[in-house]
């Protein structure tokens, strides 16, 4: 586990039994949508730049190649004990299948963000729909950046990761020649996320 920094210690002693100081994210969809990478980007941004603790896990094996794919993040100011989600704060569902499969893990106060083009039946009230795949295709002209748009939206809606950190890591992790498109996608995500949040009842 990550070592205790002074800030962490103070944090812990102020809230001795604060075992639920965890923000849990599940990014889900189908293999090839770049969700594991999106998870790694958030994890790297919050840990190496925002100074929080993080654990990122993912499904491996046949289920990770095509079919349903998911990655989980636990983010905390304090020490993270159990490394997997216990009650999900944020679920990103990029397909109907993944939405159906994972919405049950959301806590009552959690939020579902879904691709409104691909998810037509929305099983959870506290939800925000954004047509990530359509935006990627038509606004950016690159279908594969839907995941980066979703990162921007997550940042705008939850503030769990700072915009500065996210921008830095997206740039760092962009394959050479795609930096500009990815930046556009991130900016678009931040914008549509902010608008969607303002328009929602959350």
């Amino acid at each position: 586990m990550t070592p205790k920094t002074k800030a962490n210690e103070a944090h812990e002693s102020a809230k001795p039994a604060q075992v639920f100081d965890r923000f849990e994210i599940r990014l889900s969809g189908s293999g090839g949508q770049g969700l594991v990478l999106a998870g790694v980007i958030i994890a790297e941004a919050v840990s190496t730049l925002d100074g929080k603790n993080v654990v990122q896990t993912q499904s491996y094996g046949p289920e990770a190649r095509g079919g349903a794919s998911r990655t989980d993040l636990v983010i905390s100011e304090g020490e993270i004990y159990y490394p997997k989600p216990m009650a999900i704060d944020l679920l990103l569902a990029m397909t109907q299948e993944s939405c159906d499969l994972y919405h049950g893990g959301l806590k009552d106060t959690g939020v579902l963000i879904y691709d409104s083009h691909l998810v037509t039946q929305v099983p959870f009230a506290r939800s925000i729909g954004i047509p990530f795949s359509q935006l990627a295709r038509h606004e950016i002209g690159l279908p594969m950046v839907a995941n980066v748009i979703s990162l921007g939206a997550i940042c705008a809606i939850t503030k769990i990761v700072s915009e500065a950190a996210l921008t830095k890591i997206v740039t760092k992790r962009s394959p050479r020649g795609t930096e500009e498109k990815n930046m556009q996608a991130l900016q678009l995500g931040l914008k549509v996320g902010k608008e969607a949040l303002e328009g929602s009842k959350l």
Partner: peptide
Amino acid sequence: DEVLGHMREKVV
């Protein structure tokens, strides 16, 4: 174990 081997975590 598999979870520890594959999981990513902040380290100093």
